[in-house]
Computed example of a mutant assay.
Amino acid sequence: MNPFARVGLFVRQTADETRKAAAPSGRALARWSEAGGLLVLTLMAAVTVLDLAFGRGTLAVFG
């Protein structure tokens, strides 16, 4: 099968499966968005803490 035909088939099948999926309610969408934002903020805080810790450790070792 032609590679372009395979890509077209994939796109058609993906579109068909997406139409079958149920869309979330407004409240559920808001809750998921809130949870995603909280996850991003948590990860940002963790990376900041690790960056500061490694920075101070590097200064302590190499001074």
Rank of each mutant, 00 (worst) to 15 (best):
L43M: 11
V47F: 06
R19V: 07
S33H: 07
R27D: 10
R19F: 11
A53T: 11
S33E: 08
F4W: 12
P3T: 00
A22F: 12
L29A: 12
L41G: 06
L41W: 08
A21R: 15
T14K: 11
A5R: 02
V49E: 01
T14H: 10
F54I: 14
D51N: 12
T42N: 11
V61K: 08
F62C: 11
T48D: 02
V11P: 00
T42S: 13
A21E: 03
A21I: 07
T42V: 06
Q13G: 04
L29R: 15
E17F: 03
A35T: 15
W32Y: 12
V47D: 05
R6A: 14
V49M: 02
R6T: 07
A5V: 03
R6F: 02
F54T: 10
L41Q: 06
A15T: 03
P3K: 00
G63E: 02
L50N: 07
Q13M: 11
L52K: 05
V7A: 04
S25D: 02
A35K: 11
R6D: 10
V7P: 02
W32R: 15
M1I: 13
L39G: 12
R19T: 14
F10S: 13
R19C: 04
E17R: 07
V61Y: 04
R12S: 02
V40Q: 03
G8L: 07
A22V: 07
G36A: 14
L50I: 08
V61N: 04
S25Q: 01
V11Y: 01
F62H: 07
D16H: 13
T18S: 11
V7Q: 04
G26V: 08
P3I: 00
M44I: 14
D16F: 08
R27I: 13
G36K: 06
F54S: 04
A28G: 13
L39M: 04
L50C: 15
V49D: 01
G57T: 01
F54R: 07
T18V: 07
A30Y: 03
L41C: 06
A5K: 03
D16T: 12
L9V: 04
V61T: 09
G63K: 06
L41H: 11
W32I: 03
D51E: 13
A15D: 01
K20Y: 00
T18Y: 15
F62A: 08
R12V: 07
A60E: 09
E34C: 09
V40E: 03
V7D: 08
A28F: 05
A28H: 13
W32V: 13
E17H: 06
G26W: 04
F62V: 05
S25M: 00
T18I: 09
L39I: 02
M1K: 12
L43A: 06
